[in-house]
């Protein structure tokens, strides 16, 4: 599944970039994130609990931040698996100074969903993914400039 979209953040490109590299900030912004522990230079162990409508499940996996090009772009990989299935998303996040103020974020990548979740939730996956991404950027935007 292709995932692409845009978001706005009220920061300078440098600040926006730095926020998205900070595990403490990411841990707050990733919806349902319980823990994000550093396991390598660019890799973190992720524990999250997804609660969405009646669906709920715990996931364990990792977050990797690669191809750093501060403050313009980086790649982000999130993967997790749990009893209800597994997911894996990987994409490029670009930061450009917006003409008015703040930055425009564009993201583009691929996501895979598997397990029971994938087989029974087809009609919800796309909108759920988009809502989770939206929540992520909303949370980021609430950080101090």
């Amino acid at each position: 599944m292709k995932i692409a979209g845009t978001a706005k953040l009220p920061f300078t490109p440098e600040r926006a970039y730095a926020l998205m590299q900070d595990p403490l900030i990411l841990a707050k912004a990733i919806p349902g994130c319980d823990a994000l522990d550093k396991t390598g230079d660019d890799e973190y162990r992720l524990k999250m609990k997804m609660v969405l409508a009646s669906l709920s499940g715990s996931f364990e996996g990792k977050v990797r931040l690669t191809a750093p090009d501060p403050p313009n772009s980086f790649r982000m990989l999130v993967e997790g698996s749990g009893k209800i299935g597994f997911m894996k998303g990987e994409g490029l996040i670009k930061i450009t100074a917006a003409p008015d103020a703040g930055v425009d974020i564009t993201y583009e990548g691929d996501a895979q969903i598997g397990g029971t979740m994938a087989a029974v939730g087809n009609r919800m996956i796309d909108m759920t993914a988009r809502m989770l991404i939206k929540r992520f950027f909303e949370k980021l935007a609430s950080e101090p400039a």
């Binding site: 409508a53 009646s54 669906l55 709920s56 499940g57 009893k83 209800i84 029971t116 979740m117 029974v120 939730g121």
Partner: peptide
């Protein structure tokens, strides 16, 4: 959802 154990 409960029967599929997507919700518990």
């Amino acid at each position: 959802m409960m029967k599929l154990r997507l919700a518990s």
